[in-house]
Amino acid sequence: MNDVVIPSRNHTGPVHAAGVSIKDLRKSYGSNEVLKGISLEVAPGEVVCLIGPSGSGKSTLLRCVNLLEQPNEGTIHVGGFEATDLDVDIDKMRRKVGMVFQQFNLFPHLNALRNCTIAQTKVLKRSQSEADKVAQANLDRVGLGHLADRFPDQLSGGQQQRVAIARALSMDPELMLFDEPTSALDPETVGDVLSVMRNLAKEGMTMLVVTHEMGFAREVADRVVFMDGGVVVEEGVAEKVISTPTQGRTKEFLKRVLDPTHIEISE
């Protein structure tokens, strides 16, 4: 990875970037405590990558942010909303929070354009023509404007994931959540998805990304958070956490994930 550049961007971001504030978050499934008191701050326009072994709770943490999982304890603030307030208008909050799934979850009965317009017309009550315009612009943005009339099963995995990103962006979110967006992809299509995400980061979108792509985390993330066993073990500037981790568990994990011939981990 010779082309790794650490972007120095200021984090004013676009006017509508939301921050996230998580305090003492706990989540259990039965007697199995998956999140054991997580606190995390994401500033508006910041890109934070969550890394860690499978089962460490990073996906659960991400899914708690837009309440796909209901946390047991602690607080989450997203933009102007307190997600953990029981009276919060969940649907209104979720409009501000785009989510990209590992398995894409495109709507198979709708073509790419309709995938991007359905929530605009049904939730935001935009007119069909306005929604079409927004959707087309976002499909162009992810490089798939020419495939707007294709159905999901006529697209490759990488193309589907980019449509899924365009679908989320069509709602004008202030925060984007990515749950292992490239884990289900063929290796040759990973790059296209990552480059879309890279551009999004450059535009100042607040992004919380669960990923195993260390190259991407190093290059694009402002901060990296390493989780293991339901707690945050280590967090800091991406380059620093990945290149010179201080915690034993972080070193152990990175050693297993990274190709040691390319990136040296100082002991």
Binding site: L68, R94, R95, F101, Q103, N105, A119, K122
Partner: peptide, 11 residues
């Protein structure tokens, strides 16, 4: 995942 995707779009 279909419901999750729809709900996460604010439906």
């Amino acid at each position: 995942g279909q419901v999750e995707a729809a709900r996460s779009l604010g439906m």
